[in-house]
Design a protein around this nucleic acid. Structure first.
Lengths: 230, 230
DNA sequence: TCAAGGGATATGGCATCCCATTTTGCCCAG
DNA sequence: CTGGGCAAAATGGGATGCCATATCCCTTGA
């Protein structure tokens, strides 16, 4: 087992102030561990073991596992426990084919309704991202990058897009942090972000949709290539 | 209460041959009732009541309610039970904005890889649909229509599209069967189906994507108008 | 008559027990 | 040494009990 009882829940048990909060919290803990690789793909998540470690009963753990299953992160088989699914290169391509469609829709809709304030926020994030890129501060670059993507999906006016995209991204994040691409891909990515900003400034919904879809398809290709090279 | 113990589960309890089958079955029963309107929007689904009626314990019912919640069909609040959410016109627009993006993607991908056999299947369904339309057999028309949409999403080569689309459609179906549109809309819809067939015959992915997206956006508009007129 | 307070009831969340099935490991026969 | 079979342990699923809290109704006082 890869973690002792000492690195326990990090957070204290989150006092059940809201309904189903415990199961949600358990799901978050497990999701984090899956994403960070603490639970390797293929490893088995046993209800009784987790409930003992987190010092609660099996019921919320069961619910959490069900949640993770619906998110596509694990497979649950009877008497064999939950197993972390591996995200293959092919999975990444399929995932980003859909994510591209969703985020493209978000960009398209946002371009049509974007407010000056929202544009300012985006300009700010965009500028920060460019700086981090120049400086070579990868972690900050990726954070800001994610921030921009999240912002677009949040601001597009359709929460359903955000919800669907969130679930898909959880699966994609599994394993690597979608980190470090090649310098060329990085440069291309920055360029695509710049193109989106131009489309948004011009309120050109069609262009925004096109640019952003290509950006995400490229991201998918890049991630798939990375997963393949393992 | 709108149903007695005599119109029980319709199906016999589904023998737990596969794992989690019971919860899944309960979810199916409840979903059907929500879609058919047996449970009106706003009505409360009480764990204990349902478990008593279906003659099983609260556990699978509870899981089923969680599933329905993740599908966006119900809201669960502590001590207030699960309540069926109402699908408003605005919801329909948002839903179909996303569904349009997904099915458009499916059509685009399918056009690129469609086999002669698949095209034959589609031609067959399409012809049947046209016949039903001419004859005015609405139920058959809608069935075949759904069949075509399902087929496209299934055959596009990306199961993630199918999954995401399925969840969204469950919410859209809530209430009316998405039934009866105006004659003009019906004619337009048929025309759009015909346009898709042409694009698929030509293996023109771009045209297929465009046509199909418009078709679904129109469907969303139509449904929203219907919901609004209530 | 109406409003406010209190208690009974309803309800979902968590813990725990039991069961069916699968997995695992061991022992013995060949 | 190997393979098969059997028993014990492991494991998830379902059932049930208890608890905290929200809801609802009835009572009571102004």
């Amino acid at each position: 087992m890869s973690h002792s009882l000492t690195d326990l829940p990090d957070d204290p048990p989150p006092a059940a102030d809201s309904p189903t909060a415990i199961a949600q919290w358990v799901a978050d803990v497990l999701r984090e561990r899956i994403v960070k690789g603490t639970y390797a793909p293929g490893s088995r998540l046993v209800e009784r073991r987790i409930s003992a470690e987190l010092e609660l009963s099996r019921t919320p753990v069961r619910e959490a596992l069900k949640l993770l299953h619906q998110d596509g992160l694990i497979e649950i088989s009877r008497n064999r426990g939950a197993q972390v699914l591996r995200c293959t290169a092919e999975d990444a391509l399929r995932l980003f084919d859909v994510i591209a469609a969703l985020e493209s829709l978000a960009a398209e809709r946002l371009a049509a309704v974007i407010t000056p304030a929202q544009l300012d926020d985006l300009e700010d994030m965009h500028a920060r991202m460019l700086t981090y890129h120049k400086v070579g501060s990868h972690a900050d670059y990726f954070d800001t990058n994610s921030e921009i993507h999240e912002f677009i999906v949040e601001s597009c006016g359709n929460p359903i897009v955000q919800d669907a995209r969130g679930r898909l991204m959880a699966r994609a994040r599994q394993g690597r942090f979608m980190a470090i691409h090649s310098p060329e891909r990085l440069a291309q990515s920055v360029q695509e972000h710049e193109a989106l900003m131009q489309a948004l400034r011009a309120r050109d919904a069609g262009a925004a949709a096109l640019v952003w879809r290509q950006h995400l398809l490229h991201t998918g290709d890049s991630l798939a290539a990375m997963l393949d090279s393992d």
